[in-house]
Amino acid sequence: MSELKKFQVQAARPLPVIVLADTSGSMFKNGKIEALNRGLQDMLKTFGGESRLRAEIQVSVITFGGYQAEVSLGLTPAHSIEAFNPLTADGPTPLGGALRLASELIEDRERISSRAYKPVIVLVSDGYPTDDWRQAFETLKNGERSAKATRFAMAIGADADFAMLADFANDPEAPLFKAENARDIHRFFKAVTMSVSARSQSTSPNQSTPLQLPPESEDDWDF
C-alpha cells in the first residue's frame, strides 16, 4: 500500500486543443461547413479512441459566425465527448471575439493548469474578419501563456485572409495550409489529429510534431 498516493493528483496531464472555427455565412457555400463538421467529428472520435496516451487530450471549439464568437464546446476531455452538434454557418466573421475567448481560456490557470502540456490552437477560416481582430491577435501572440501555444491555420478557398492566417501559424514545420476543396479540409484535420496524437503518445508531449498531410484522393470535392 503506497503511503504517498494520497498526495498524488488523480488526473492525467492535459493536452489542450482549441479549435477556432469560422462559421460565417460564406462557409455555407460549396459544402465547406459540412466538410468542417466531418473533419471535426472525425478528429474528436480519433482523440477519444486513442489508447497509447501520455496525456489527456482536451478539446474546445470556439466558433465565429454571426455577431459574436461563442464557445460551442468548452474544454472537455476528448474521451468523454459523447456527441458534438454540427456547426451551422451564418452572418459575419467576428474573429477578434474568438481570439479573445481563446486568450482568456489559455491564460486562466484554473481551466488550464501549469501541469498541462502547451496548448494547440487551430484556426480555420474562409474569409476576412469583420470585427476589430488585430488587438485580440496581438494579445494572443504576446500573452504570458498564450504566446507559448502552437498555432496551426487553414485557409479555405480563394477568398480567405491569407496574410492574417499565415501570420497566425507559428510552427515552422506547419506553415499555412490552403484548402482548395472540401477534401482538403478533411485532410488538414487528419493531419492535425495525427500531430496531436503523436504528441500525446510521445515521451516529450511538448515537442511539436510536423503536420503530415495524408495523400489526396481522386474524389472531386472542388468548391
Binding site: 503506497s2 503511503e3 504517498l4 498516493k5 498524488q8 493528483v9 488523480q10 488526473a11 492525467a12 496531464r13 496516451l53 501520455r54 496525456a55 489527456e56 515521451t203
Partner: peptide, 12 residues
C-alpha cells in the same frame, strides 16, 4: 517502491 507505483493516470 513508492515512485515505481506512482498513481497519477498516464504519468510517464
Amino acid at each position: 517502491q513508492e515512485l515505481a507505483q506512482w498513481s497519477t493516470p498516464l504519468h510517464g
